[in-house]
Amino acid sequence: MASINPYLIFNGNCEEAFLFYQSVFGGEFPYLGKFKDMPPAEGNPVLSEADGNKIMHVTLPIGYGSVLMGSDSNSASGEVAFGQNVSLSINAKSKEEADKLFNGLSTEGTVTMPMNQTFWGAYFGMFVDKFGINWMMNFDENEK
């Protein structure tokens, strides 16, 4: 069965964001590589020290087979234009887990829909975290 692993692009604060996500989810980074760690290759631009220290790729397992991945943009790839077209949806295993993750991830962010029972029977909420990422939190007691 395929899984969806969200990939987030940042404008230089990927490491800060992933340290924050790690503080909420726990776990270790199986891989955290910086642009300066890439082997030299013909055609690759010479990076400034600042770009070299940005995150090229990071992974953080976040449970139930899902992996959160991310990267920084650099001067060669250009500035990231953030939009409102992506939300990350988490299906929690319990109401307590939903509350823990919702409260942790929404710290310093904006809650757009507090956790509450919905007309479709789920315990659900939405927020934008302090890095501008949209999240949806769901717990469905009737899910088999």
Rank of each mutant, 00 (worst) to 15 (best):
M1A: 14
P6A: 12
L8M: 10
L8S: 05
L8F: 05
N13V: 14
N13I: 13
E15R: 04
A17G: 05
L19E: 15
L19T: 08
F20K: 08
F20G: 06
Y21R: 04
V24C: 02
F25A: 06
G27D: 12
F29K: 11
F29P: 07
L32H: 09
L32Q: 06
G33Q: 14
K36I: 01
K36C: 01
D37M: 01
A41P: 01
N44P: 02
N44M: 13
P45C: 08
P45R: 10
V46P: 02
V46D: 03
S48Y: 06
S48C: 10
I55V: 15
I55Y: 12
V58N: 03
T59A: 13
P61L: 12
Y64S: 15
S66E: 02
S66M: 10
V67A: 08
V67L: 12
G70L: 12
G70D: 13
S71K: 09
D72S: 12
S73L: 08
A76E: 13
S77Y: 09
A81S: 01
F82G: 01
G83R: 04
G83F: 00
Q84R: 02
N85Y: 00
V86D: 01
V86E: 01
A92P: 00
S94I: 03
K95H: 02
K100F: 11
L105Q: 02
T110N: 08
V111H: 01
P114H: 11
M115S: 11
N116M: 15
F119M: 14
G121T: 13
G121E: 09
G121Q: 09
Y123A: 07
M126S: 14
D129R: 14
G132S: 14
N134S: 10
W135E: 06
M136A: 03
N138K: 00
D140Q: 09
D140P: 00
N142S: 12
E143D: 09
